[in-house]
């Protein structure tokens, strides 16, 4: 009885709208991420950790 009563909780719009927001966002950023014209940028970005800056040898 308790579960039945709680299942009537009157906010079905809440999870449904949340789900829609998630699906829309997910589709958008997946599409955007996998656009072919961005490959070069990704290669560049992925190398950032490998570069600490150039060490200066003639330092004070």
């Amino acid at each position: 009885m308790k579960q039945q009563a709680l299942s009537n909780f009157d906010m079905p719009w809440l999870p449904i709208s949340a789900l829609i927001i998630f699906v829309v966002c997910f589709c958008f950023y997946t599409w955007w991420t996998y656009k072919k014209d961005r490959i070069d940028q990704y290669i560049l970005m992925s190398k950032i950790p490998l570069e600490d800056g150039e060490e200066r040898k003639d330092k004070v």
Binding site: F22, C25, Y29, T33, Y42, I43, P49, L50
Partner: peptide, 28 residues
């Protein structure tokens, strides 16, 4: 994402996947 590429001296396997990973994880 920083120390593994650093330790093996090569970039992360897929930067694209890291973007999807980030937004999905944070959102979900």
């Amino acid at each position: 994402y920083y120390f593994i590429p650093k330790a093996v001296n090569r970039p992360v396997y897929s930067y694209r996947l890291s973007i999807i990973h980030f937004w999905s994880l944070v959102f979900i």
